[in-house]
Write a protein that binds this DNA or RNA. Structure first.
Lengths: 231, 231
DNA sequence: AGAGTCTTGCTGGAGCTTTTACAGGCCGTA
DNA sequence: TACGGCCTGTAAAAGCTCCAGCAAGACTCT
């Protein structure tokens, strides 16, 4: 059961930093806009002007973007304490993806001007934000790692451990990804097709690497998966 | 000559922010380690502990990482005023790629403790760093955009404008990428093979989209390239 | 100028993925 | 209960990439 040690540290670190960031902001008496989104609701759209820091407090949310004309790629699947949105300290920036709630989500939005005030008043806020931005970079690097190999099998072998890390539920020495994922969902995450994912997933099941139950995937042989993903 | 307006703003913004960051740090009397690297020298290696902020002052530098066993992907090609390195404000982090000088490079290294001191003393430093981190995120998003489509042609059609944006030399209404790039170099950037790049580049040349002279690529028809890259 | 190295160009076959098409299963709703 | 919609499982054809190998051209260093 060798979970990449660095990644699991990152998950904890992120929760810790996000929580204390919100706490600090609250203690400073700075207003935040909390809102709940229902499945399918859009938090923002690609191209909108962004000028706020978003923190996902609970629920699952996805960032996606169209590519190759009619396809859709999921760039990040977020869970509690992930941050998202471009806040554009200098100049203005547009959102580079769509943000859509997958399950019911609670989102805290901190407008740019308040973030700036908080950073000026309290350097610790700056450290939290810088750390969270770096963790977001790491997530992008993980995505790139998924996309570099061309075979769907290898891409999935890279993706599944990442999902297990983030949405994993550990029991009896195996990890179950606690999400109902369709093959289509997985295909969007590795920029492949539903058919290829179906094929690969069945192969993995036949080789006893994974188990699928009601859309929930259990990783039965982490070591073999990591081996597949290529060192 | 429609260069993506947001990306060109980003290039200027980055130079501005990096320069003023270094100026601020200097004014505060904080020590930085400046060093020159020769082509091929490694600034750091994947897996090393990172605890500094690196600023590339001049030259060209690449971040790369092995994948699929024996291949090598170039994650970012950096030029003046790009920042790199994981500095791990909280906890410790390892470098997630190799950093290697392509041409002679001048690099300013600001150790983590000094960055922390500067941020505490002067909130403006924090804003600069946060802005630079966000720009790095944008660069990763661009890389992902390159990797999402599977055909080498589309990937290159995405990559070339990005390179032109960053290394472009504008003359007579056309842009020349001011770098000697071999097909192998390009292949490493789009995670493809040298043969495929050769083929696609020749096609593009035949269609009068680009021109190649001594390893330097000129984009003759920006609009058609962007069209190829898929909206 | 010459030798050696790197780069480019081209090929054919093997391997995956994509595309298209179709059938059966599951589920929620009318 | 019946219907429609979404999800899974297969299959065949077409396309592109990858691999291995080879030859000619360009460049560099001595």
């Amino acid at each position: 059961m060798d979970v990449d040690p660095s990644l699991s540290e990152y998950t904890e670190l992120q929760e810790q930093e996000s929580r204390s960031l919100l706490r600090l902001i609250e203690e400073m008496g700075i207003a935040t806009a909390d809102r709940t989104y229902r499945p399918g609701d859009a938090v923002y759209r690609q191209g909108e002007y962004g000028d706020a820091l978003y923190v996902l407090v609970s629920g699952v949310l996805k960032l996606f973007r169209p590519y190759s004309g009619s396809k859709e790629a999921t760039l990040r699947l977020l869970t509690s304490w992930d941050i998202f949105g471009h806040l554009a300290f200098a100049g203005e920036a547009r959102q580079r993806a769509y943000a859509e709630a997958v399950t019911e989500c609670r989102v805290t939005k901190i407008p740019k001007v308040f973030v700036e005030r908080a950073v000026r008043q309290e350097p610790r806020v700056a450290f939290k934000i810088m750390t969270l931005l770096e963790l977001r970079l790491v997530q992008y690097e993980e995505l790139v790692k998924c996309l570099l190999p061309r075979e769907t099998e290898v891409r999935l072998a890279n993706l599944l451990p990442i999902l297990a890390q983030k949405f994993g539920d550990r029991q009896d020495g195996v990890v179950t990804i606690d999400l109902r994922l369709t093959h289509q969902d997985l295909a969007a995450m590795v920029a492949s097709t539903r058919e290829s994912v179906t094929k690969v997933l069945n192969e993995m099941r036949n080789r006893d690497l994974i188990e699928v139950d009601a859309g929930r995937i259990t990783l039965k042989d982490w070591r073999a998966l990591v081996k597949l993903s290529g060192p």
